[in-house]
């Protein structure tokens, strides 16, 4: 297992390198300068700005310098949020995204697995139709429709929950988190429920479950003790990358609920040509995916003894 961890981390280095270079090249191919605006920016001022951030050197030099800094853990300054370092922005944004994302994933996992099992118990039954109907609806309606709808109903009409997720008055409090977490969890719930149901059905059809049934074990024991563990394997392998994606934040949810997460930077930083911030969040994301995949592999070991022995 330690070997697995070491191996994964070794692979991570070239992965991240490719990621950085690709993002760097794409960003710099883009027309438009980080400092352009409709307002009056005399050429001399723009030159000063470029010089201040070292953007007047050759691209190769800039890339090497960036990689060198990165190796030392320096993510560089933000070109747009000029009072901040990229590292600061990530450090400040990540806890929000992480909380929100983890809460959403826990909710999606709990509700999704439960729904999946419930649906698989009697395939074709009323409950199955209902739950899977909800699940498919969950991946058929874009979340930029779901989120405002939730706000309209629960915050404006009913007044039960705050419309914004954050702020000193409702600073990611339990109440403030409910709506964004639900909106974020819905599509994940749908995937998890469908996956669980499908793999549960497959497992229930296998020979050892038939054997357990033949032994006359109670249905509950069969489902939860014998069926669930193997049925969760595909769910776990889905969870890894999905969690990494969710905890780096969602642009849509963050914009609509006014949350201070990381997700916005993926779009905003690109639009602002905030080169270092773009690279920073991309590297960070890559790192999270690597870690998440590692965790998935470890969980596989927990769930499936065969994998452990290998």
């Amino acid at each position: 297992m330690l070997r697995l961890i070491r191996h994964r981390l070794l692979v991570a280095v070239p992965t991240l390198l490719v990621l950085v270079v690709l993002a760097f090249v794409l960003m710099r191919l883009a027309p438009g300068s980080p400092f352009s605006s409709e307002r009056n920016l005399p050429p001399s001022v723009e030159e000063n700005l470029n010089a201040r951030y070292g953007l007047d050197d050759s691209l190769g030099e800039q890339l090497l310098r960036y990689l060198g800094n990165l190796a030392r853990g320096d993510f560089g300054p933000s070109l747009y949020y000029s009072d901040h370092d990229v590292a600061d922005l990530i450090r400040e944004g990540f806890p929000t995204s992480l909380r929100l994302g983890l809460a959403a994933m826990i909710l999606a996992l709990g509700a999704g697995v439960t729904a999946g099992i419930a649906a698989a118990r009697r395939p074709g039954g009323m409950l199955d139709h209902l739950l899977m109907g909800v699940a498919i609806a969950g991946i058929s309606v874009p979340n930029f429709v779901v989120a405002p709808l939730l706000i309209l109903v629960f915050a404006v009409w009913l007044g039960w929950l705050p419309a914004s997720g954050a702020g000193p008055d409702a600073s990611l409090t339990a109440a403030g988190m409910v709506l964004p977490v639900v909106a974020l969890a819905l599509p994940q719930f749908a995937y998890v429920a469908r996956l669980t149901r499908a793999s549960m059905l497959e497992v229930l059809d296998s020979s050892y479950i038939l054997a357990a049934r033949a032994k006359g074990l109670p249905e509950r024991t069969i489902l939860l003790r014998h069926g669930l563990r193997p049925a969760l394997l595909p769910v776990v392998s889905y969870l890894g990358p999905a969690t990494a994606a969710v905890i780096t934040g969602s642009v849509v949810i963050e914009e609509i609920f006014g949350l201070p997460g990381l997700g916005r930077y993926f779009v905003q930083a690109a639009l602002n040509r905030d080169y270092f911030l773009v690279l920073g969040v991309v590297v960070f994301y890559g790192l999270l995916v690597v870690i998440a995949n590692l965790l998935v592999d470890l969980c596989y070991g927990l769930l499936d003894p065969r994998v452990q022995r290998q």
Binding site: V11, A12, P14, T15, L16, V18, L19, L22, A23, L26, P241, A245, T248, F266, V267, A270, V282, Y285, G286, V289, V290, N293
Partner: peptide
């Protein structure tokens, strides 16, 4: 390697 890419972002 590509799995670690934030594709949506690209």
């Amino acid at each position: 390697v590509l799995y670690a890419m934030p594709f949506m972002f690209f």
